[in-house]
Simulated assay, not measured.
Amino acid sequence: MGGLEQPTKASVCLPDTSAALALAGQGEVNLRRLEALTGASLVLRGLELCINARPNQLERTQTLIEMLRPLWQEGQGISEVDVQSALQALDTGRSAEHRSLGEQVLARSQSGQLLRPRTLRQKAYVEAMESHDLTVALGPAGTGKTFLATVLAVRMLNERKVQRLVLTRPAVEAGERLGFLPGDLQQKVDPYLRPLYDALHALLGAERTSALLEKGVIEVAPLAYMRGRTLADAFVILDEAQNTTTAQMRMVLTRLGENSRMVVTGDPTQLDLPPGVMSGLSEAAQVLDGVEGVAICHLSAADVVRHPLVQRLVNAYAQRDARRPLREPARRS
């Protein structure tokens, strides 16, 4: 018994109530999560967080709390993803690199939320977009591929580094079904482009987004509208690129004009193409790997920043797909 480490105590002073609420989480869910991960006991008393743990647990707990400081210190909500990302960085010796996530604020949303990469792979993705003319991002739903690209695009537009934004995606299912939808062609394809509008509204607000769309500063259009054009002085985002054919991908990549940047995003496991048709995204990731000026970024289930259940769903389907015989790619679930 004498050899057991005795519990030790420490405390963290929080600057204000918003920081305390952010660190604790709703119903103190973050404190309970940290307790489960570290074995420490955490009690919030006003603006003082009291930690009771064995020495090795204490150090681990204090380090995790410090890694999360950029979020709670500003009253920003802390999610399960944030905690898991910090823990993974700590366990892989990348805690110092993780701390810099808090310094990489890209923008502030209309609701006042500070927008920044939340995992190390997201950080690498943002840095790739900032330093390359063409970035290809592959990863499951919810990893922030399109949203982070849109955040960076809007920032570059506000800084006048580009003159316009062009956001496009293939309307794969449109081939047979558009004729049954009401309205003109733009109204028919709008449902396929809604996720791009949603990202713009979160960043700019609906009123400013509409004004920029009317002026042509922002263009949201189906991929078919890109043929024959040269996209100069623009930030171009091709979303859902797994649903492009190889010919479509080559077409849109060669639209890139002077002083332009392009980001191509998609999830190779979520195909809506007909059986036997190769995805232009998968081919591009292979063909362009190592080409100067091109970055290929891979995000994983660990980077999912939606509801925590989404990460578990992505993992479950990935395990199912790994058990399948090597046949055609998995269709969209």
Rank of each mutant, 00 (worst) to 15 (best):
Gln113Lys: 02
Ala128Thr: 12
Val310Ala: 12
Lys145Pro: 07
Ile218Cys: 08
Arg94Glu: 09
Ala171Gly: 13
Gln286Lys: 15
Leu185Tyr: 02
Val236Ala: 03
Leu212Phe: 02
Asp267Ile: 06
Ser210Pro: 10
Cys297Gln: 10
Ile65His: 04
Leu64Glu: 03
Gly280Phe: 00
Glu173His: 06
Met156Cys: 11
Glu59Thr: 13
Leu165Val: 10
Glu219His: 07
Ile296Ser: 09
Val305Met: 01
Pro140Trp: 02
Glu5Pro: 11
Gln104Lys: 09
Leu37Gly: 04
Cys50Phe: 02
Leu203Arg: 03
Thr61Ser: 08
Gln270Thr: 04
Arg177Tyr: 00
Leu167Tyr: 07
Thr246Pro: 13
Asp233Arg: 12
Gln84Phe: 03
Leu49Trp: 09
Ser109Asp: 14
Leu256Val: 15
Glu74Ile: 01
Ala234Cys: 14
Arg155Pro: 12
Leu152Asp: 08
Leu288Tyr: 05
Glu159Val: 01
Asp233Tyr: 05
Ala221Trp: 01
Arg169Lys: 13
Ser282Pro: 10
Asn315Ile: 04
Gly280Tyr: 02
Arg33Leu: 13
Ala206Thr: 12
Pro7Gln: 13
Gly280Ser: 08
Glu283Ser: 07
Pro140Lys: 00
Leu204Tyr: 01
Gly183Trp: 00
Pro140Asn: 05
Arg331Ile: 08
Leu213Gly: 00
Gly266Gln: 07
Arg227Gly: 08
Leu204Gly: 01
Pro117Met: 04
Leu87Arg: 11
Pro308Ala: 00
Arg331Pro: 04
Phe235Gln: 04
Ala221Met: 14
Pro308Gly: 02
Val217His: 12
Phe180Leu: 11
Leu37Val: 12
Leu101Arg: 00
Arg208Thr: 11
Tyr125Glu: 04
Leu178Pro: 13
Leu213His: 03
Tyr192Met: 12
Phe235Trp: 05
Arg164Leu: 01
Leu196Tyr: 07
Ala141Ser: 15
Phe147Thr: 07
Gln311Ile: 01
Glu159His: 14
Gln319Gly: 03
Val43His: 11
Glu5His: 12
Arg45Ala: 14
Asp133Tyr: 02
Arg33Met: 06
Ser95Phe: 08
Gln76Thr: 07
Ser79Arg: 04
Gln76Cys: 10
Arg255Pro: 05
Met67Arg: 10
Val263Ile: 15
Gly3Lys: 12
Ala40Ile: 03
Val151Arg: 09
Asn243Cys: 09
Ala24Ser: 15
Glu5Gly: 14
Gln122Cys: 02
Val304Phe: 01
Thr17Phe: 04
Met129His: 11
Ala124Gln: 14
Asp82Cys: 10
Leu42Ser: 06
Leu271Phe: 02
Pro275Cys: 11
Ser131Arg: 15
Ala22Tyr: 03
